[in-house]
Write a protein that binds this DNA or RNA. Structure first.
Lengths: 119, 119
DNA sequence: GCAATAACTATCAAGATTGATAGTATATTA
DNA sequence: TAATATACTATCAATCTTGATAGTTATTGC
C-alpha cells in the first residue's frame, strides 16, 4: 500500500519534520531538557546549582543536554573568570522565554496527573 | 506568571520521577506521540487514516507508540468486526482530552518557530 | 484467479540516549 | 599539606528508540 505525502514538510536547521509539532518536540524532547528549562525558568543558575536541583542526572548527561539547549538557542552560557575554578551561568534566552507558556501547560498537566493519581 | 512543581519525588505506575514535569514528559515524549495525539485531537481515526496522516513513520513504530499511549490511558482502541479486514478506531480518552491545552501550546510554539525561521 | 485492503506482528539491525566511573586544572579553605 | 570546590571531559557500555523489510489472516473487487 502506498501513501502520498499530503502534509507540508517543515525544514529547520537542515532537518525535515512532518509538522511543526514534531519540530517542537525535537527541541524539547528527551528525558531532561524540560526539567532543565523548568529549573531555569525563574532565574539564571550555575552548573553546580543545576546539579543540586537535579541530583538524579549524571554530570555527563546534564552537560550534553545543556549543550543541545544552547545549540538550539534555548539557553545561554556565560563564563566568569579564566582559571579554574571558573563560574558559569546558564540562563534562558529570549527564545527560551518564548517556551514558558508551553512549560507552564506541561507543568500544570503533570501536577494534575500526580495529584489525581495520589487520591 | 507563576507555576509550581512539587520537588519531591513523584511515583507513578511503579516509576519514580524527580518532578511532575518529567512525569509528563515520560508520557508524551518520544518522536511520534505528540504527533499522533495531534492527529487524533479533532476526531477518532482508523489505523489506516493515521498512516496516511503520518507517512514518514513506519507501521511498527506507529503500532508501538499507539500501544504505549493506550497503556498510559491517553487513547482508546475500539475494534469493529471479528474477521479481517477488521476496523479499528483510535480515539482520545478523557485523560487524553486533558492534554489538549498542552498540545495547543506546543503547536502554537512550533508554528511560531517555523514561521519565524522562514522569514 | 489475483490483487488489493485492513491492521497489524516478527525479525534484525542501526542509531540515539543515558548511565557509571574516573580524570582534568587551579584556587581556596582547613 | 590535604581536602574541597568548580565545571566540566573521556571512555566504555547498557539500554532505549526507531527503522527496514517481510509476513499474517480473511474478505472484497475486478
Amino acid at each position: 500500500m502506498k501513501f502520498e505525502c499530503q502534509n507540508d514538510l517543515v525544514e529547520m536547521s537542515g532537518k525535515l519534520y512532518p509538522c511543526t509539532v514534531s519540530l517542537a518536540m525535537d527541541i524539547i524532547g528527551g528525558k531532561w531538557k524540560t526539567v532543565i528549562l523548568y529549573h531555569l525558568k525563574d532565574s539564571k543558575k550555575r552548573y553546580s546549582e543545576l546539579r543540586k536541583d537535579m541530583p538524579t542526572v549524571t554530570e555527563r548527561t546534564l552537560s550534553l543536554q545543556l549543550k543541545e539547549l544552547q545549540k538550539d538557542g534555548m539557553v545561554s552560557r556565560t563564563v566568569y573568570g579564566v582559571k579554574p575554578p571558573i563560574r558559569v551561568e546558564y540562563c534562558l534566552t529570549d527564545f527560551g522565554q518564548s517556551f514558558l507558556p508551553v512549560l507552564q501547560a506541561i507543568t500544570n498537566w503533570g501536577n494534575r496527573i500526580a495529584s489525581e493519581s495520589a487520591t
